Computed example of a mutant assay.
Amino acid sequence: MNDIAPHGIRFGRIAAMLPVKDIRRAHDFYVGVLGFAKTFENGNPVGFMILKRDDAELHLTLQPGHKAPPFNVAHLMVDDADALHALCEANGRRIIKRLQNKDYGLRAFVFEDPDGNRIDVGQRL
Rank of each mutant, 00 (worst) to 15 (best):
I9F: 08
Q63W: 06
D120R: 00
M77T: 10
I50V: 13
D28C: 05
D22E: 11
L99Q: 01
F111A: 12
I14C: 14
P6L: 03
Q123A: 02
N2K: 12
R24A: 14
R94L: 13
L125K: 07
H66E: 09
E112Q: 15
R24S: 12
P70C: 07
R118E: 14
A56Y: 00
I23E: 04
A26V: 07
L99P: 07
R94M: 12
H66N: 05
H7A: 13
Q63K: 09
D113N: 06
P19S: 14
N91A: 01
L84Q: 10
Y104D: 04
N91I: 06
F71V: 13
D113E: 10
A68F: 11
K38D: 13
G8M: 05
L99W: 03
V121R: 11
R98A: 15
A56Q: 09
L106E: 13
M17S: 13
V31T: 11
L76Y: 09
V46E: 04
K67E: 15
R53D: 04
E112A: 15
A108L: 00
D113K: 02
L34A: 08
R93H: 07
K97N: 01
M49G: 06
D79K: 11
Q100C: 12
T39W: 04
F29E: 08
K21C: 14
I14N: 14
D103W: 01
L51D: 04
H27W: 11
I119P: 10
A81L: 05
G92C: 11
H7K: 09
G105H: 04
I96E: 13
G35V: 09
R124A: 14
D80E: 01
V121E: 09
A83P: 00
A16K: 03
H7W: 09
A86C: 02
R13Q: 13
P70H: 09
D55K: 10
L76A: 11
H7G: 04
P19Y: 09
F111E: 06
A16I: 00
H59M: 12
C88D: 00
P69D: 09
D82G: 02
A15I: 02
A5I: 04
G32M: 05
V33S: 11
G43C: 09
A74Q: 06
R25C: 01
L18E: 01
G12I: 03
F109M: 02
R118S: 03
L84E: 10
P70V: 09
Q100F: 02
D103A: 11
F11G: 02
A90I: 03
D28F: 11
A90T: 02
H85N: 10
M1C: 06
T39S: 14
F40T: 01
Q63A: 08
D82K: 09
N2C: 06
I119W: 08
E41K: 03
I23W: 06
N42Q: 13
I23P: 02
M49D: 00
G35I: 08
R93I: 01
R13L: 12
L62F: 00
P64A: 08
M49C: 11
K21D: 03
E57K: 12
C88I: 01
D55M: 11
A108K: 00
R13N: 05
N91T: 07
